[in-house]
Amino acid sequence: MKGTQIGEFEEVVLLVVGLLYPNAYGVNVRQEIESQIGRKVVLGAIHSALNRLESKGFLVSKLADETHARGGRRKRLFQITASGKKALETNRALRNELWNQIPEVAWKGLSYEGF
């Protein structure tokens, strides 16, 4: 498998693919990200991330049946693989470990204007 690291955007895309199972395809992944996170994303970025994640082995895809509503075009549906689930678990564990190491005193008297 090529490349096992995922960035923040790829993590969000993987999570949303899982959330939308079994109907995760580019357009509704984009809509769900915008709805859940409030982040505007161009469809090309979604397709690039989906293809990258598939090439890393974190997603698999298949073509759905043709539909009249789509003018006979087929959707490419995505699903998380076991490797994709493992990548998400690794990211979550690392993030939780870092959060747990921050001493409480670091949070006291926080100011958003700097030191």
Results as ranks from 00 to 15, higher is better:
Met1Tyr: 00
Gln5Met: 15
Glu8Gly: 05
Glu8Lys: 11
Glu8His: 02
Glu10Tyr: 13
Val13Pro: 02
Val16Gln: 03
Val16Gly: 00
Gly18Ser: 13
Leu20Asp: 03
Tyr21Arg: 02
Tyr21Pro: 01
Tyr25Gln: 05
Tyr25Leu: 06
Val27His: 14
Arg30Met: 15
Arg30Glu: 13
Gln31Thr: 10
Glu32Met: 02
Glu34Leu: 14
Gly38Phe: 10
Gly38Ala: 12
Arg39Asn: 09
Lys40His: 13
Lys40Glu: 14
Lys40Asp: 14
Val42Ala: 14
Leu43Thr: 01
Ala45Cys: 06
His47Arg: 01
His47Phe: 00
Ala49Ile: 08
Asn51Cys: 04
Ser55Tyr: 07
Gly57Ile: 12
Gly57Val: 12
Val60Asn: 01
Lys62Arg: 14
Leu63Phe: 03
Ala64Met: 09
Glu66Asp: 04
Ala69Glu: 15
Gly71Tyr: 05
Gly72Ala: 05
Arg73Leu: 08
Arg74Asp: 13
Arg74Tyr: 10
Lys75Trp: 09
Arg76Tyr: 13
Leu77Cys: 07
Phe78Asp: 00
Gln79Tyr: 10
Ser83Leu: 14
Ser83Tyr: 10
Ser83Lys: 02
Gly84Lys: 07
Glu89His: 08
Glu89Asn: 08
Glu89Ser: 08
Glu89Cys: 09
Asn91Ile: 13
Arg92Ser: 13
Trp99Ser: 01
Trp99His: 03
Trp99Leu: 09
Trp99Phe: 08
Asn100His: 11
Gln101Phe: 14
Glu104Lys: 03
Ala106Cys: 14
Ser111Trp: 06
Tyr112Asp: 12
Glu113Trp: 07
Gly114Asn: 00
